[in-house]
Amino acid sequence: MSRRVMKRIVNPIIRHAVLLFLSVVWLVPIVWLVCTSFSDYPGINIRTFLPEGWTFKNYTLLFSDPDSVANFPKWFMNTFIIAIFTCLISSSFVLMVSYATSCMRFKMRKPLMNIAIILNLFPGFLTMIAIYFILKELNLTNSHLGLILVYAGSSGLGYLVAKGFFDTIPSSLRESARIEGASEDQIFLKIVIPMSKPIIVYTVINSFLAPWMDFVMAKLVLNSGLSKDWTVAIGLYNMLGKTLINSYFARFCAGGVLVSIPISVLFIIMQKFYVEGITGGAVKG
């Protein structure tokens, strides 16, 4: 009797204690990020985990006092503009490619899809260097247009998740529309697109987030050293250089928190589509 009681009481306690421990491990760096962003010591506090004095100064400094090192409002705007345009172009590319490969039948369909598989096997960094030179020849380095082109240009290759979604739309639907006399573009724009809200949300958020998360490509293209051109990622990375880290670390944390909030919200909205996309695509092969 007492053993069963023990089992019923102790087991859940152990289970939730383990979970609590794991959550703490996963959240410690995030908590440290948030706490340090309120620290009144500008560098890295290595003596105590929590800051010794609390202040809002780091946030106000980010906005009120942009200098040559930290120009957060400008970075934010830059990234925002780049993200908007990237999002518009690459979402439409992805939807177009995935609809064509999923719902339409034409001779080049299979060969094109095979080429896409091979292209996806090349490491992205390989093309990066060549893209940089091409942009340089076109005078597009250090311009936001160049960066948008780079982000959006080959976005069509990431069509698989959306294709997996379009594959689930019954073909009888399109068939009946065709019998009613609808043309292919009407079927796409008036019937399939309005039905595909989840995958559109996923694609839009995904492509909107890419410029916020990317760091390498931006660093390569926007290499002028003028901080007003940068995106948030390069700007924040730059704050952690050896000579700057001791006066800017707290501000880096504040900036990190500010970028993370909108990104986290979008990411949490997106995560359920993320799962559907990957598992759905896998089952259909």
Binding site: L22, S23, W26, L27, P29, I30, L33, W212, M213, F215, A233, L236, Y237, G256, V259, S260, I263, S264, F267, I268, Q271
Partner: peptide, 13 residues
């Protein structure tokens, strides 16, 4: 809790 940890952009975390 676990999702929050990965929702922060990698270059920050």
């Amino acid at each position: 809790f676990f999702v929050i940890a990965i929702a922060v952009p990698q270059f920050v975390s």
